[in-house]
Design a protein around this nucleic acid. Sequence first.
DNA 1: CGAGTGATTGACTTAGATCAATGACCGTGG
DNA 2: CCACGGTCATTGATCTAAGTCAATCACTCG
Lengths: 201, 201
Amino acid sequence: MSIEECLHGFIPETTVVQCFNAGAVLFHNGSRTVGPYEIVTGAVRLSRIDASGKEVVLHIARPGDHLAEASIFSSVYHCDATAIKKSTVRLYPKAALLSEFERNPDFAKSYAAMLARELMTTRARVQRLGMHSARERVRHYLALTAAKDGHVEVAGTIKDLAAELSLTHEALYRTLTQMERDGEISRSGRTITLRDTRALQ
Amino acid sequence: MSIEECLHGFIPETTVVQCFNAGAVLFHNGSRTVGPYEIVTGAVRLSRIDASGKEVVLHIARPGDHLAEASIFSSVYHCDATAIKKSTVRLYPKAALLSEFERNPDFAKSYAAMLARELMTTRARVQRLGMHSARERVRHYLALTAAKDGHVEVAGTIKDLAAELSLTHEALYRTLTQMERDGEISRSGRTITLRDTRALQ
DNA sequence: CGAGTGATTGACTTAGATCAATGACCGTGG
DNA sequence: CCACGGTCATTGATCTAAGTCAATCACTCG
């Protein structure tokens, strides 16, 4: 489902494992690309400096996440990546990926398919963030994330989910309790269950 | 920059031009993919039915736009596409694209690069929509869109831009006039000029 | 055991959505 | 050629949902 499946098994011997202390920079906006990374342990913040000079956090990548999948086709990175705690990461060297891409059509296909999937989920996120009410966003997220039985296992904390939905955690808490009061969902621990039958098509 | 460059010149002879009346459906969520489309004339609405049964508009595609670029790797479409006026579109048949993809590494590379670019701009949009204030969103949009001289030629109407930024058009008008009052931008017709030197790095 | 963080709820404020109105412009059909 | 219906651009008034500030409790971790 991620870059992972597509990278694993192809060129494991060319990858490079690196270690960064908290605050260390993996790369910054405009620096030459060396390739995409996978987070092994720790956490890496992807950010960009906006027009007014303020830093905007794009994403916090956690173990298992991959970043800069698109970097094999671009000459420079388009954001800053900073370790926010001591982290180990695996680098997939661009040159090796590229030559594999040219040599092996199966690899090319699965890499492109991975980019396409990533694109679709990112578009879904755009759709979600375009919704003006917290409730709609939560509903959209749950509907797209839930298994057939309506269960959603929340990865990470509720605060993380709030960030993903671009809400304050307070707003999310309130929305969830309200939805629970209305019988739209039920919660227990990390699991949220959608009770609307239609939502599961 | 778009799917265009990458498709043009490769397999023009296999494309199919089709015509749809207003209200006609190109494809709907879950139907088998036949390939990506290019809008020649008219306009096509991409939408999805959300959990509560309400239709959510993902995008309005206009002449020159392409849709469902990711469809060559997926078996079904993931949204509904409806012509909102009489429209002609060009279909790039999936099978032809796929075989070209396998046969021609250059094509594969430029197609994947196109997906990667698309992914980056979509991520930028996610970043933008994550900003809570109208002004920040406008700033972000302008900073990423402006030419070196700070000029931004707005494609389409201000209402379209408002939709892109997920603001009401009223909010956008007010924000723009305010930014102009503050000397942050200047406007004349379809052109907006950023006056903040830092914004242009 | 204290420090740090997540989960949760309350009170207050505000930015932006909503509703509404007006003038400019534009194509078009009589 | 002009009147009319439609849409865009713009501004005002009002309302509300979500952000902000703040406090409490539970939990984990060295």
